[in-house]
Each structure stands twice: as structure tokens, then as C-alpha cells.
Amino acid sequence: MSLRAKSHPVAGTIAWLASLLMFFPIFWTVLASFKTELGAIATPPELIFTPTLENYTEILSRADYLSFAMNSVVVSFGSTVLALLIAVPAAYAMAFYPTKRTRSTLLWMLSTKMLPSVGVLVPIYLFARNVGLLDTRTGLILMYMLMNLPIVVWMLFTFFKEMPKAIIEACLIDGASQWQTITMILLPLVLPGIASTALLNVILSWNEAFWSLNLTAHDAAPLTAFIASFSAPQGLFWAKLSAASTMAIAPILVFGWFSQRQLVRGLTFGAVK
């Protein structure tokens, strides 16, 4: 009988303890977000308390919070749509009509992702400043699109590669046009793949914190930058920091749970499946 056929109590206990430990900082933050400012810094820590929504109402009533949140939404979804529009044709072409150069093109794309952002910080910053893209949503959307394009092409490529070629060929032989084949047969088949690619792209853009901190000041600053403003030393606003953090991470956490399988494929460029 296989070892794994039955439940393994020791492994289970250790795994559960490790999982709870890993999740604890998130749990603790959510808990603190319902405390008063005094309660959040109290020692010994408050475990039983009357929950308050005060921090949430206060953060939400700050005029600029919604602008930060909107920037995050617009920038991460905008860059995702743009990246997909550019990457889907490329991935389709490379998966279905590979040429001698396809392999080296893909590997070259992967290698551009390895360029450290900081190595090109100076020219990108100066360029953005000179053409007026500094602190604009457009600038950040373009930046994230370029930053994630290699991952998007790669991930789509691995999905397209798995499509049954016979179906496509049958359609073409039956007289369907390229366009019909793509929109009516292929697209529905690869939609789940495109959706998980989009999800990963949104997650990466939402959490990006190098360009957002360096290329935005206020107008286009997303939530990563808003949270960073809590690092200012004056005063300890832990409860409000916790409430703002909870709101900033909650949607992406849910996205992440749904996309955990496909994430591996995207982040390892198909090297681990």
C-alpha cells in the first residue's frame, strides 16, 4: 500500500503549523485594522476587543485614497489589456507557425526580463520627465506593459502550444478563414489560458513597487506608493496602516488564490509545469 494513500498526521501537523505561521502576519494586520489606534499599539496585544470600522471609514473618507485606488485599478488593468493585445498575436504566430527564429526570439524575450530595472532607471526617468510621462497613469501603464510583455508572451505561448493542432487544420481545410478559425474555434479554447495570463499580469502590476515609487509622485501614484507614505516617522498610525493594507491586498489575494496553478507556469516561463 502506498504511503500517501492514508492521511499522515505528523506531516499534516507540521504543515498546518507552518501554514498558520506564514499567514499570521496577514491575519494580525486584518485584526489590527478593526482596533482603535490605541488598541493597535497596546502591549500586551489586544486579543479581545470591540471591533470598530472607524479606520476604514477614515481612510475611505480621505479624498486622495480613492485616487490612489483608482490609479492602481486603471494602471494594472490598463497595462494588462494593452499587453494582451500585443502579445496574443505574437504568441499565436509563434505557437502555430514556428520558424527557425522562434526559439531564439522566445529566449531573447526571456533574457530582456532579466534586465535589472535599476540599470535603466536613469534613462527611463529622464525620458519620462522630458516627454511629460512622469507621474502619469499613461507612463506607468506603458512601463508595466513593457515590463510584463515577455511573461505574457511566454505564458500565452505555452497555452497555445497545448491546443490540438488537428482542430485548427481541420477548420482551415473546411474552408474557414484564418480569422474565423481564430475567433470561433481557437479563442474559446484558449480563453481560460488568456484569463490566467491576465490575472497574473494584474497581480504583478498591482504589487509592483520599483517604478511606482520612482516614476510617480502624487497624481498617478498607486496603492503601493500610498502605503509607503505610512513609513513617515511622525506618529504611529498602525490601525489605519492596517486598514489601508487590508484593502490594498484583499482583492489581489483572492486573485492569487484562484490563479495559483497557472502562476507557476507564468513565473518559470514554462520550465516547471
Binding site: 506564514m22 496577514i26 498602525w238 490594498a248 489575494l253 486573485f255
Partner: peptide, 21 residues
């Protein structure tokens, strides 16, 4: 799911909750 959750927390949030809380 609990185990992989920290990966989806934005870097500024994880740094600040560790530093403070």
C-alpha cells in the same frame, strides 16, 4: 492557500506590517 498568501502581498505592505506590527 494560507502558505502561499504572503506572495500576493505588495512589498510596501509586507515591509511596513513587519516593521511596525
Amino acid at each position: 492557500i494560507l502558505m502561499i498568501s504572503p506572495f500576493f502581498v505588495m512589498p510596501t505592505v509586507s515591509a511596513l506590517i513587519w516593521k511596525n506590527l
